[in-house]
Design a binder for these strands. Sequence first.
DNA 1: CTGAAAGCGCTTACAG
DNA 2: CTGAAAGCGCTTACAG
Lengths: 345, 345
Amino acid sequence: MSMIADALGVSSATVSNALSGKGRVSADLVDKIRKKADELGYVPSNAGRALRTGRSNVLGLVLPDISNPLFPQIAQAMETAASNAGYGVLIADSRGKVTTQTQAISRLIERGVDGLVVIPRRGTRIGDVGCPVAMVDTPSTPGNTVSADHWEGGAKVARHLVDLGHQNFLLIGHDPASNVQNDRIGGMKSALGRNTRHTTIWLETLMHERGERASLGLIDHVQNGVTAIAAVSDLHALRVLTELQTSGIKVPQQVSVTGFDDLIFSPVVTPSLTTVHMDMARIAELAIAALVREIEQGKSTVQNGKAAKQTVTADTSKVSMELMVRASSGPAASPDAPFPTGETL
Amino acid sequence: MSMIADALGVSSATVSNALSGKGRVSADLVDKIRKKADELGYVPSNAGRALRTGRSNVLGLVLPDISNPLFPQIAQAMETAASNAGYGVLIADSRGKVTTQTQAISRLIERGVDGLVVIPRRGTRIGDVGCPVAMVDTPSTPGNTVSADHWEGGAKVARHLVDLGHQNFLLIGHDPASNVQNDRIGGMKSALGRNTRHTTIWLETLMHERGERASLGLIDHVQNGVTAIAAVSDLHALRVLTELQTSGIKVPQQVSVTGFDDLIFSPVVTPSLTTVHMDMARIAELAIAALVREIEQGKSTVQNGKAAKQTVTADTSKVSMELMVRASSGPAASPDAPFPTGETL
DNA sequence: CTGAAAGCGCTTACAG
DNA sequence: CTGAAAGCGCTTACAG
């Protein structure tokens, strides 16, 4: 910057004003300065600016587990949204543990992030961290900033399966402590209606009770009349699908299978997986917009009366989920399959 | 910092020296200063430090496509390695395009990263960017810093299949312009030996010629005697596996299937997928170590004679890949399957 | 062992 | 429209 100023015989204040386009500099000079900057390959120093303005223009993204297959979508969407808003994204992996999550957050704070997007570990509340935080979890979580409407997503799959004529369902969750999964399953149940039956399996519980590679007992369920299996994740749906196929049960002719999240492999398998897609780009935009608004209003400083409001509020907190109907749900199960009377859950 | 200095009646220089543990301060004072710092919840300003030292302690990670299913492993490993070395990680997605890759790199540079880890878009060479760069591609790529030994990985799968008694192979690649994939396929071919046959399909080429959802013609290949199908990615292996299963072809009884990368779903499907696993943690450590060494030697400044050496060199440039034998390769194809004489590729 | 001083590169009132 | 000055928070020679 001083190089440009010296080369042109102007003050660095003028260079700064010209380059930041604040309009206090004559058009001619702005042109000259711009040209010189290009010529010298001038790259403004973030450190200098950050020190002066007190803002780093960097956001932190805290993920519960980077190796989660949904992470790519999230990271990509956040990076794009942040980048469009002029922010960089620093990532931190909390590796499933709450303590690590706290450490991850501290590390980001130390690096001077202006705000944080946190995908919390199931049911974690984030303490006061000294900067605005956007939480992306599920609408039923207190403090949630934006997220997909997982409940509605569950309802959509269930309704789809009901419309197909299914009456006997197996719902597969993983972790009963997960808000997201509970919402998805809750949504499914809410849409199943009176003359259907369903059973819910939580894999984590099952594995805990019967060991790591416990059988899901899929065949038994099918023999007992289940014709639709709806999982809270494509990963589980994939497991179900391939297990059924290996046992010679035809999908979707004999059993319909659905997942969640539209993971990368879902359209690729045969039969392709019916699933529910979330508009991560929109969620990210809303989260980042809320964060940026708070940051740029400067409200986040501890100044104001009590503790600064921690988690930020977005314009819309629920983003609709889209049902992707593909081959694995297929046509209705043959209607002559007798409806097993008995307990309706 | 000045708060601590004032509270204790010492100079900020002393606070700085005490906190950074340079040993120029008496033990007593160090203790007092540490306590005061904790008490005040002092968090050093990165901006101040960066401005003074000229280093941000942040590294940039440039990914060809965040939505790649391998990305979680990479990002996680890099984040851990960087964090252990005292660096943060700023991500940037080059979204497949070379121009976007260049933009992504510029953005990171503008944010003042000290170094870059680049997973390059197939066959891209990185120009002079003004900071050290570690490239993670494949050993056969010029400028490669560290990577898995993809060729060896390919050789390992092929050898495994040969040992199982297979003699007629279908190799499935995606993009013939990818160095990684070419190395994997090359390695496979190198290990197939004399009395075997093989055909290679490149999906991108196929799709280009026959449309998006073109059939792989798997059944035909199997009818023509193929008993082992080896793909360059678990994603393709999964496609193959489910297509075969849907057609009633038993895996592994009739055909063995193998993939690459040990993606998250690979151990979960039935039959579980035989694949090749890379030690991303080690690759990340080597890449980051090489980068940090270069950064901390300060060699990267443009000072020295010609242009500063761009891509950095690691202690080891090839990291071994590990074969994960699982159910999908299974026992040898029945040996009474007649070996179709004819062209040996 | 401790401190006073300078300066990293910016931006922002404030004067002119 | 342009410039001189101050200061953001740190660290690093340099004195003492």
